[in-house]
């Protein structure tokens, strides 16, 4: 474990908690892409199947359970508890355009042609594009509440910190996970446009982000 990965995991946790609390307290999921949240729940489900087969550390196990519980709880809030506030017409991204290529690629490019390994690879590729429905929804509605932009900021920052973690691990222990690194770079690039708007608009206290 290194400081970059720890900070990354904390940013990830903060992002997920920000979103959950926003929906829970405002009793509304307006402006939130349910599709992205379903994709994230799928990412955690396919990645954390080793929860019962391989023990790495208490931290690893606890965080996996926390991420799974919060991901499914958020999906529950959107599609069941506060479904009347869900903007399904704005959340119109065709997720099959993500799932099919990601599933195909995970069969083609993986470390081992074994069920758990292919599911892990699927989760890595899927995570890199899972935020697209949310970013698409924001471009469609032309705006995002500031709390939603803080959620996206921490979510984008988490994988950027993981890139630093991989540089650190490469130089200190020769660790190099090519699939995770390439996907992590792609994932972080998707946030660049958002980061620009976030720093130029939201942090200038203009409240919510309105797209040009």
């Amino acid at each position: 474990m290194n400081i970059f990965r720890l900070l990354g995991d904390m940013c990830h946790l903060v992002a997920i908690i920000i979103l959950f609390l926003k929906i829970w307290r405002s009793k509304s999921c307006a402006g939130i892409s349910g599709k992205s949240q379903v994709l994230f729940a799928l990412v955690f489900t396919t990645r954390y199947l080793d929860l019962f087969t391989s023990f790495i550390s208490v931290y690893n196990t606890v965080m996996k359970v926390v991420f799974l519980v919060l991901a499914y709880a958020t999906v529950y809030l959107i599609y069941l508890r506060f479904r009347s506030t869900y903007n399904s017409e704005s959340d119109s991204f065709r997720v099959e355009f993500l799932l099919v290529p990601v599933a195909g690629l995970s069969f083609l490019e993986n470390y081992a042609f074994a069920p758990l390994e292919i599911l892990w690879t699927f989760s890595i590729y899927l995570e890199s594009v899972a935020i697209l429905p949310q970013l698409f929804m924001i471009t469609k509605t032309g705006e995002a509440e500031s709390i939603t932009t803080h959620y996206l900021f921490f979510l984008g920052l988490y994988r950027a910190l993981y890139l630093a973690n991989w540089v650190w691990r490469y130089h200190t222990e020769g660790f190099f996970d090519q699939i995770a690194v390439v996907s992590g770079v792609v994932q972080t690039i998707f946030y660049c446009d958002f980061f620009y708007l976030y720093f130029t608009k939201v942090l200038r206290g203009s409240g919510k982000m309105t797209l040009p």
Binding site: D9, K64, N165, F175, F176, D177, Q178
Partner: peptide
């Protein structure tokens, strides 16, 4: 494809 790192990250 490269070696199969033990997936010790979240």
């Amino acid at each position: 494809s490269s070696e199969n790192p033990r997936h010790d990250e979240l």
